[in-house]
Design a protein around this nucleic acid. Sequence first.
DNA 1: CAAATATAGATGCATATACATTTATTTCAA
DNA 2: TTGAAATAAATGTATATGCATCTATATTTG
Lengths: 165, 165
Amino acid sequence: MTTQQNKTTEQAIHIGSSCACFAVRKMTRAVTQLYDHHLSEAGLRITQFTLMNAISGFGQVPVYVLAEELVMDRTTLTRNLKPLIKAGLVDSIPDEKDARVRNLSLTPEGAKRLRTATPHWERAQAEFVEKVGEKSWAEVSQGISLIDRALSNGPRPSDRLIATG
Amino acid sequence: MTTQQNKTTEQAIHIGSSCACFAVRKMTRAVTQLYDHHLSEAGLRITQFTLMNAISGFGQVPVYVLAEELVMDRTTLTRNLKPLIKAGLVDSIPDEKDARVRNLSLTPEGAKRLRTATPHWERAQAEFVEKVGEKSWAEVSQGISLIDRALSNGPRPSDRLIATG
DNA sequence: CAAATATAGATGCATATACATTTATTTCAA
DNA sequence: TTGAAATAAATGTATATGCATCTATATTTG
């Protein structure tokens, strides 16, 4: 049994160091914390900043479109929106044409908060790029795009826009 | 105000496509789903598989050591262990020397489940590497290691081991 | 047009994540 | 040796994530 036990242990260690999912999750924890620490000064998390920034970019956008754009489960998006709506930063208004749809937009207070938070995001991004190195990040960033394309089941809306242009 | 509005919108779009944290979080969602879909056949999630695999590698390990090893907040680890302990896959035994410490180990059932799940992990990993490309993943993997080192506040235990050898 | 199907959003459930704090214990220093 | 400081784990609180399912509405089909 000793041999069997040793083999199992070695296999375990091997998986730990090679598992792609563990690697990306671990990295994401570290990156998220860096951004969250900066944005906490503005009372937002990076996930919330991302959401508000995307909504701001659209001006007005249905939940399902935003979910597609962010490659996020619709139900996840619904939940993530809840604290922002409750805090009065985001409005969720029923669509006039389609009663199933709700359109999201920033409230004036939401737009203000986004402006206040942006310098903190910039500092987080700057610290990240400074620590990792601009060149290294550019390479990893390309790799991430590649992974996104490899794992998605078809072109995203944004990709279509680019492909069309 | 129209000019101001347009400027804000363009800035919003720019942040969305360049934010390192959004990029890594989006990728992690996709990768996690791939692994989770495979491992669901064994009744585990990739996070649980990772935990059990690490515990198996140690044989017996205190919570705080495992947290360091996985670069995970101790409280996060405590919570993630709860369903595994409840399911009888992991044992949490008080240390004999230090009453504050709890040592984790796989139960026989846990070891069995880990063995059952491993082929599913292998299929997930194989599908990932096949889709992304072995060479591309090797490059991204190096980049991830680089980011880990850049964001950590010092060498991890495993790094020390390698550096010593 | 009415029934079947599809879509948008919300909810129930379960887990993942981390900060602030609490509790128990150990270590260290006066 | 005792009292302060440090450490390990757990808990309170809040958000992040996604599957299965439900409800309401819209679209398609017979």
